[in-house]
Design a protein around this nucleic acid. Structure first.
Lengths: 195, 195
DNA sequence: TTGCAAACGGAGAGGGGTTCTCCGTTTTAT
DNA sequence: ATAAAACGGAGAACCCCTCTCCGTTTGCAA
């Protein structure tokens, strides 16, 4: 446990940064369930070092997820300023790609078991807020049918992201996500078909 | 291990059926990772009884998944005979609903870690075969744009199913899956938007 | 009714994993 | 040089898993 008064030692600071960097990749790859063991193994450090820098596993996860959420939020804010049709495209694509590349983010945004929903609830609320703006602008511009709901956008993005990691099966198809995204965008513009 | 010659005892048969029935529900709820422990606990039996009826955990899982796949296959065959537009609808809805209600099936069809892809590979191939037929018929009838691919249908279904279990978050929304399905069907008819 | 094979449940072996701590050693910075 | 702080590895204490052993109970046929 670091003494709040004395200035931290150089190696301590270095290792803290290293752990955050490594954890970012590990959470992206393995999800929120990643173990401290795995993180310190990748960092080439001991477990005790981890617990000297962070109070718990959750504290580090929270830090990592905060960073990623901020990144997403920045992108969405830009999409909300852009041309409405393009902004909708960009927003969906951003959400899909980030979630497809970052399993931890996917698990957090889709309430997977093991993800504490209240972690960064504020940032998650801001994500929804931006999506509402993006959806409403797209509807006004005719890029999204009035019947479609902005509330469904995160679900659609999560849906598409869910398939990305599992493309291994039938064919190694790089454009799968692009095609599915195109299909969904077309559906959003046209409006839902009666089922 | 049962003696192949002597007729099985009534209680042994009863317990075998019970284990299969309970496992079906457990796999639907908890996925392929469900433990023998959990199954026998739900069945009110001992673990030894389980291993006297089945050679391994995998043997029971395989039996359960075979049944579910057969069910799906039956439904798809019907959809492949119906009106092409309706058949596409029915097929997607069937796949989504079955996967949404049966986590084990979802994990198998979407190559989740822990799912042996080769389990019932024959049935899985037949599923794809029916989907090809359904997709091609829909395209001929104009219910699916020529640019859309039948190969993407299982991914779309898996995508939508993936969100269903996690509707807890924003609002308890019973029609979410219906709406997303409608959006996807509209997109399939219209053809993919450039991304 | 009785006898015995078969089925039974629970305990536990043996494996894996996890989070987090203790302690003897090394590094840093004065 | 010295002392405080950081270090790594071992391990405590817990959880869960698959699968087996063994003493007891049950079903069935003579």
């Amino acid at each position: 446990m670091p003494d709040a008064e004395t200035p931290a030692r150089a190696d301590a600071l270095r290792n803290r940064e290293l752990l955050i960097k490594v954890a970012r990749h590990a959470v992206a790859e393995l999800g929120l369930g990643v173990s401290v063991n795995e993180i310190v193994r990748r960092a080439g450090l001991g477990q005790a070092t981890f617990y000297r820098r962070f109070a718990s596993r959750e504290e580090l996860l929270s830090a990592v997820l905060g960073d990623v959420l901020d990144e997403v939020l920045d992108g969405l804010r830009q999409a909300a300023e852009a041309d409405p049709a393009q902004g909708l495209r960009d927003a969906l694509r951003l959400l899909v790609e980030h979630q497809a590349r970052h399993r931890g983010l996917f698990e957090l945004l889709n309430d997977h078991p093991g993800a504490a929903a209240e972690v960064h609830a504020d940032s998650q609320a801001r994500v929804r807020e931006q999506l509402r703006r993006i959806g409403e602008r797209a509807q006004e511009a005719g890029a999204m049918h009035p019947d479609a709901r902005w509330q469904d956008l995160p679900f659609l993005a999560g849906s598409l992201a869910a398939t990305s990691p599992s493309c291994l099966g039938i064919d190694a198809d790089d454009n799968l996500t692009d095609r599915l995204l195109g299909t969904v965008l077309a559906g959003l513009r046209t409006g839902t078909a009666r089922v």
